[in-house]
Design a protein around this nucleic acid. Structure first.
Lengths: 218, 218
DNA sequence: ATTTGTCATTGATTCAAATCAACGCCGGTT
DNA sequence: AACCGGCGTTGATTTGAATCAATGACAAAT
């Protein structure tokens, strides 16, 4: 998931007076699937995993959010329960607003719904991309496009995985093993270079794009 | 995708004065991925496929919408291009509102954003479920849960696929062949019964639920 | 310095969907 | 009535990720 966006910034500013800064330790659950009450969170530092645990024990990571992103506001909009769980992967510093406050504010000033609506639109757009990526039969394009995305958001050739290799693999819908294998392939093809654990240098952006092609559309 | 909901009805009523009724023939493109201008559509009759065509020629169906559902409003909210294409699978009767009108209305009466926001929330929730279903390794739970959903929305035991078997298969992320095979398995297990082409009777809801279990969460 | 535990990597095997291919059925057309 | 074409079904084969298993690398703890 890409970091800050126009609408996210806008929300942060508009709701600024009501936000309270909070710190969370590593591996803390921020909210749990099914919870009906919660809080809206704006991440300042650290990363948060959004996931769901299935009845069979397996879990699916939908995405990992980091600074500049919002989470946890869905129940405040439609009154439904959280559709997913959220857990910190790091120490997280965040701005928080309670359910009650959020509702109060939105009632007193309905225009504030607009940036939220726009932010939600962005997330919804992302959802399509996620589905496309995950419905890919082969893992290589998935990994290639993941690196491409990291490259875009770092806007430089040296890439560090934002979280552990394992968590990152899960967030793009792969097992850690498959991820590792495909990374090795990209290294062998001289498309990326291993600098260190979870640190890489992009050597050939065009080839990377070519490998991820069935996923990117423009 | 389930049919009408509270927020959908609300939107239809609130925007009623501005809607224009329109009819579309079968296999007509309503909007295309990348288009920046378009219309918001409320389906009265028929069904619409929401999909994306990949560079390699393959296409992914995200879902199929029928009466009581909205589509096409995303660009009107955030100004971005359509993230997907929409095509009629039937003759479709619909209420339509243009981009220009939509923007005008929302400006004059910002409170109308709320039901749209709620509707979008619902779609976003659905997106998680779709991702969960598609990331299932085995096809059987996918098919079982699809039948369960059809059962719920028809609220009776006799089920007719809302569209062709092929399109339906694609909409749940399977090839037509795999879908057919898994349906045959369910028939052999006496969980469903074949009545006619694309017509079935649910014989054992509990078993159906059991088979789809790793997908449903409550 | 040794131990412990986690994480990343690599190898061998399994497994189920996708693919390729063929056939029967039905509706529409001439 | 005969032909055609799309659709759904079934069979044989391929394919590639997941799984199971083992090892190596490194950091923290004692």
């Amino acid at each position: 998931m890409d970091s800050s966006s126009k609408s996210a910034e806008e929300i942060r500013e508009l709701f600024a007076p009501y936000f309270v800064e909070m710190n969370f330790q590593k591996n803390v659950t921020l909210f749990h699937e099914g919870d009906v009450d919660g809080m809206m969170i704006f991440i300042l530092e650290g990363s948060v995993k959004i996931f769901r645990v299935l009845p069979d024990g397996n879990s699916i990571t939908f995405f990992i959010l980091d600074q500049g992103n919002f989470l946890g506001f869905l129940p405040m909009i439609d009154g439904g329960p959280y559709p997913v769980s959220a857990e910190t992967l790091d120490e997280v510093k965040a701005l928080v607003i309670t359910h009650k406050d959020f509702t109060k504010i939105l009632k007193s000033d309905p225009e504030l719904a607009l940036p939220v609506l726009q932010y939600l639109s962005k997330l919804f757009r992302n959802a399509f991309d996620i589905i496309v990526k995950r419905s890919n039969r082969d893992a290589l394009p998935v990994v290639a496009s993941a690196f491409l995305e990291l490259y875009k958001r770092e806007s430089r050739n040296d890439i560090t995985l934002p979280v552990s290799s394992k968590e990152y693999a899960l967030s793009i819908g792969l097992t850690p093993e498959s991820f590792s294998r495909k990374v090795s392939e990209l290294v062998k093809e001289n498309i990326i270079q291993r600098i260190d654990i979870n640190k890489f240098k992009i050597l050939d952006v065009d080839k990377l794009r070519a490998f991820s092609s069935p996923i990117n559309f423009f």
